[in-house]
């Protein structure tokens, strides 16, 4: 069956579709996140090499840090689609993604600070991994600030899309700061990514929680994009014909 994807680039057909997807993603988000955390807290060893019980922060820390980085790529992808095809829904998706991306970055920084305090004895350090994550937070904030500062939506969509694309340069920097090809060249406090060495039970907890976080992000992004669509299209006849408006 061929699906006409362009059909869903019209807000009037995307709005009801998003509404149908929200409960599905929300259920998956709750089941997977709770399942992942249950596994992480109850089916894994109490200590991880030199790390004591505080290493359990890993489940939210790694999941939110991954989401923060990936959502930035997702946001830029929507922005680029908007620039190429000039589809309004793409721009709306980009700005709906930005807020959730910012929240994920904030969670990763907060949980990282608490983990850092127990593990290294400091809440914060200007090490490359943490600094780039902080810059990522500022990029999300900058994107949203730029968008809200220009009143004309078409112009604000395009301007913020370009800013998002320029900021994409941060993503490989973040990636290499944790997956450094030669550790001697990038001295940092933050440990290297050690996915291959981590015990499989811990890895399962982490991956399932991350999947739950993905579903959570889909849920709130779709909820937000529905609000953005309604606000921007409030004067159109299709909005007036919606069942919930009667």
């Amino acid at each position: 069956m061929a699906i006409n994807w362009f059909k869903y680039s019209a807000p009037s057909s995307f709005y009801p579709l998003a509404g149908k997807m929200v409960p599905v993603f929300m259920t998956l988000a709750i089941v997977l996140t709770l399942g992942g955390l249950y596994w992480g807290f109850f089916q894994t060893p109490e200590v991880l090499s030199d790390q004591k019980q505080y290493y359990k922060i890993i489940y939210v820390h790694v999941s939110s840090a991954w989401m923060a980085m990936w959502l930035y790529v997702v946001m830029v992808a929507w922005a680029v689609l908007g620039l190429i095809f000039n589809t309004r829904v793409s721009y709306m998706m980009a700005s709906a993604t930005a807020v959730t991306g910012g929240i994920m970055t904030a969670i990763s920084l907060w949980t990282g600070a608490f983990w850092g305090q127990t593990s290294w004895g400091t809440w914060w350090d200007w090490d490359p991994r943490m600094t780039t994550q902080l810059i990522l937070l500022f990029l999300y904030i900058g994107y949203l600030a730029l968008q809200s500062s220009i009143e004309d939506t078409r112009r604000s969509d395009r301007a913020s899309a370009v800013l998002a694309m320029v900021g994409l340069a941060i993503v490989p920097v973040i990636y290499y700061s944790i997956n450094c090809p030669n550790p001697n060249e990038c001295a940092s406090l933050h440990q290297e990514s050690s996915l291959e060495r981590v015990e499989s039970n811990i890895l399962i907890g982490m991956l399932v929680t991350t999947l739950g976080f993905w579903m959570y992000c889909f849920t709130v992004i779709l909820m937000r994009v529905r609000n953005i669509i309604l606000r921007r299209e409030s004067h159109t006849s299709w909005v007036a014909r919606l069942e919930e408006m009667q």
Binding site: E46, K52, Q53, Y54, K56, I57, V60, H61, S64, I107, W110, T111, F114, W115, Q117, T118
Partner: peptide, 14 residues
């Protein structure tokens, strides 16, 4: 194991 404050502050914030 004595690290409740750190673990639950992180989980609670999220």
């Amino acid at each position: 194991g004595g690290y409740g404050f750190y673990v639950w502050s992180s989980m609670g914030f999220a």
